[in-house]
């Protein structure tokens, strides 16, 4: 993989991760023996058809779920040893989620939505508003602060969600099919925003089944039947990068 990463501490280490569901009497492996290391400021796409286990993997990486067996180490912390409350804290501090369905609070305006993680981080009101505004400005929504989700376009909603993900300065942005509910124009917009966020030094994991979208990432991991099928650098992105710089 990326040679530059060898002398850095990994952000994420997955060691022999398996996830088993019981369907009736039968054991179903959603994930089998996953080994994966991701370093800071990587831009990774996880690809695979539905049923390949990519959602399960994302939930485990996002600390929404815990593996049946194996070790997950995030920033040196062993996630398996944490209880529910600690997992909530980790999600709050270290992870910023961006979902396909946007998942904004429908009754709250853009500013309130972006403030939400800061409320749970126990940050005082004036600082919350300050930081939420900054995040919304950084995604280009400075004139939409008091709009409610139903007053915004799909692309704008996803930008609010991205601002919410960024506002806590997390170690990792986890995006699950972020363009899945958008028209192609808005989708491109969002992907440009991710690119910019990555360039600012953030680590991004992108879960998608669309090849085109995955091509925005620097590293592409393909899943099939709960196993890693391939894990390689994206030649296009490397080319794209060198052209740009």
């Amino acid at each position: 993989m990326n040679v530059n990463n060898l002398n850095r501490n990994p952000l994420i280490e997955l060691k022999n991760i398996s996830k088993v569901y019981l369907v009736g009497e039968e054991q179903v492996f959603a994930l089998r023996d996953i080994n994966l290391t991701i370093y800071p400021n990587e831009y990774v796409a996880i690809m695979g058809p539905s049923g390949s286990g990519k959602s399960t993997l994302m939930n485990i990486i996002g600390c929404l779920d815990t593996p049946t067996t194996g070790e997950y180490i995030l920033k040196g912390i062993n996630i398996r040893e944490l209880d529910d409350n600690d997992l909530a804290s980790i999600r709050n501090k270290e992870i910023g989620f961006v979902f396909q369905m946007f998942n904004l609070l429908p009754r709250a305006n853009a500013l309130k939505n972006v403030e939400l993680p800061l409320i749970y981080a126990g940050i005082n009101k004036s600082e919350r508003i300050e930081r939420a505004k900054k995040a919304l400005i950084s995604v280009g929504l400075e004139d939409r602060l008091t709009h409610k989700p139903n007053e915004l376009s799909g692309g704008q909603r996803q930008k609010v969600a991205i601002a919410r993900a960024l506002v806590t300065n997390p170690s990792l942005i986890l995006a699950d099919e972020p363009t899945g509910n958008l028209d192609s124009k808005s989708g491109e917009d969002i992907m440009r925003l991710f690119h910019q966020i990555w360039k600012e030094g953030n680590t991004i994991i992108l879960v998608t089944h669309e090849r085109e979208i995955a091509m925005n990432a620097q590293r592409i991991i393909r899943l099939r039947d709960g196993r890693i099928e391939s894990d390689e650098l994206n030649p296009q992105k490397v080319v794209f990068e060198s052209v740009e710089e």
Partner: peptide, 16 residues
């Protein structure tokens, strides 16, 4: 339910 899920995803603890 969905709102509760969102709140939990962004870090709301049980007691909150």
């Amino acid at each position: 339910t969905r709102e509760i899920g969102i709140r939990k995803a962004v870090g709301a603890k049980r007691r909150w």
